[in-house]
Amino acid sequence: QVATSTVRILGMTCQSCVKSIEDRISNLKGIISMKVSLEQGSATVKYVPSVVCLQQVCHQIGDMGFEASIAE
C-alpha cells in the first residue's frame, strides 16, 4: 500500500537545498518518490506507511537544518 502526503519545509533558499533534501529523503527505505517545491515551501512524498512514517521524514529534514512539518 502506497500513500501520498505533503510536508511543509521552512528554510529552503535555493535549488541546492531542494536537491539535498530530495537526495537524502529518496534514499530512505520505504520512500518511493519525493518532489520538493522551493516556491511552495513543501514536498510531496510518496511512501509505504508500513515501512516509513512521515515523522521520520520530517526528522531527517530537521537534521539537515530545515523546519519540516506534516501539512494538514
Rank of each mutant, 00 (worst) to 15 (best):
Q1N: 07
Q1M: 05
Q1D: 15
Q1T: 08
Q1C: 15
Q1V: 08
V2I: 10
V2Y: 14
A3H: 12
A3L: 15
A3V: 15
A3M: 14
A3D: 06
A3N: 12
A3S: 13
T4M: 10
T4N: 05
T4H: 07
S5C: 15
S5K: 07
S5T: 09
S5N: 10
S5A: 14
S5L: 07
S5V: 14
S5D: 12
T6R: 12
V7H: 00
V7N: 01
V7L: 15
V7P: 00
V7M: 13
V7W: 01
R8G: 07
R8I: 12
R8H: 10
I9E: 03
I9T: 00
I9Q: 00
L10K: 14
L10W: 14
L10F: 12
L10I: 11
G11A: 01
G11T: 00
G11R: 00
G11H: 04
M12W: 05
M12D: 04
T13L: 11
T13H: 14
C14G: 06
C14T: 06
C14R: 00
Q15H: 14
Q15E: 12
Q15K: 10
Q15M: 14
S16H: 12
S16W: 06
S16Y: 06
S16Q: 13
S16A: 13
S16F: 08
S16K: 14
S16N: 12
C17G: 04
C17L: 06
C17Q: 15
C17H: 15
C17W: 05
C17Y: 05
V18R: 05
V18K: 08
V18E: 05
K19T: 12
K19L: 09
K19A: 09
S20L: 14
S20W: 07
S20M: 15
S20N: 11
S20V: 10
S20G: 05
S20H: 09
I21R: 02
I21G: 03
I21Y: 01
I21V: 05
E22G: 03
E22D: 01
E22Y: 08
E22C: 06
D23G: 07
D23I: 10
D23N: 12
D23S: 11
D23E: 13
D23L: 12
D23F: 09
R24G: 09
R24E: 12
R24F: 07
R24S: 12
I25A: 01
I25W: 02
I25C: 05
I25H: 01
I25Q: 00
S26P: 02
S26L: 09
S26C: 09
N27Y: 07
N27W: 06
N27T: 11
N27A: 12
N27G: 12
N27P: 09
L28K: 02
L28V: 08
K29N: 12
K29S: 11
K29W: 11
K29F: 13
K29Y: 14
K29L: 13
K29R: 12
G30F: 08
G30S: 04
I31M: 03
I31R: 00
I31Y: 00
I31P: 00
I31Q: 00
I31T: 01
I31N: 00
I31C: 04
I32V: 10
I32S: 00
I32H: 03
S33Q: 09
S33H: 10
S33D: 09
S33V: 05
S33T: 06
S33R: 06
M34Q: 00
M34V: 15
M34N: 00
M34Y: 00
M34R: 00
K35D: 07
K35I: 08
K35Y: 07
K35R: 10
V36Q: 00
V36M: 01
V36E: 01
V36A: 04
V36P: 01
S37E: 06
S37H: 12
S37P: 01
S37Y: 12
L38G: 00
L38W: 06
L38I: 06
L38K: 01
L38T: 01
L38R: 04
E39T: 10
E39Q: 10
E39H: 11
E39L: 13
Q40P: 04
Q40K: 14
Q40N: 14
Q40Y: 13
Q40G: 11
G41T: 05
G41W: 06
G41P: 01
G41D: 06
G41F: 08
S42Q: 11
S42R: 10
A43E: 03
A43H: 02
A43V: 06
A43S: 04
A43L: 07
T44W: 09
T44L: 13
T44V: 13
T44G: 04
V45M: 04
V45L: 11
V45A: 01
V45I: 12
K46H: 14
K46E: 15
K46M: 15
K46D: 05
K46P: 04
K46R: 06
K46I: 15
Y47V: 02
Y47E: 00
V48Q: 13
V48G: 02
V48D: 15
V48A: 08
V48P: 00
V48N: 15
V48R: 09
P49V: 07
P49L: 06
P49K: 06
P49A: 07
P49M: 06
S50Q: 07
S50H: 07
S50M: 07
S50A: 12
S50G: 13
V51H: 04
V51N: 02
V51F: 06
V52C: 03
V52T: 05
V52H: 00
V52G: 01
V52F: 01
C53I: 08
C53F: 06
C53W: 08
C53P: 08
C53N: 12
C53A: 09
C53T: 14
C53L: 08
C53D: 12
C53E: 10
C53S: 14
L54M: 11
L54G: 01
L54C: 05
L54I: 14
Q55M: 10
Q55R: 10
Q55S: 11
Q55I: 11
Q55F: 11
Q55D: 10
Q55T: 09
Q56H: 13
Q56K: 12
Q56T: 14
Q56C: 09
Q56P: 01
Q56R: 09
V57F: 02
V57K: 02
V57L: 07
C58P: 04
C58I: 15
C58V: 15
C58W: 06
C58A: 11
C58L: 15
C58N: 09
H59R: 14
H59S: 14
Q60R: 07
Q60S: 11
Q60N: 09
I61M: 04
I61R: 01
I61H: 04
I61L: 11
I61P: 01
G62T: 14
G62Y: 13
G62C: 13
G62D: 13
G62F: 12
G62A: 14
D63C: 07
D63S: 11
D63I: 12
D63P: 03
D63E: 14
M64Y: 00
M64C: 03
G65L: 05
G65T: 02
G65V: 04
G65H: 03
G65A: 03
G65Y: 06
G65N: 04
G65S: 03
G65R: 01
G65I: 05
G65F: 06
G65W: 05
F66S: 02
F66H: 01
F66N: 01
E67K: 12
E67Q: 12
E67I: 12
E67H: 12
E67R: 12
A68K: 03
A68P: 05
A68S: 05
A68Y: 05
A68Q: 03
S69R: 11
S69F: 13
S69K: 09
S69T: 12
S69Q: 10
S69P: 03
I70L: 11
I70Q: 05
I70E: 07
I70T: 08
I70N: 05
A71Q: 13
A71N: 11
A71P: 13
A71F: 10
E72T: 14
E72S: 12
E72C: 08
E72D: 12
E72I: 09
E72P: 11
E72Q: 10
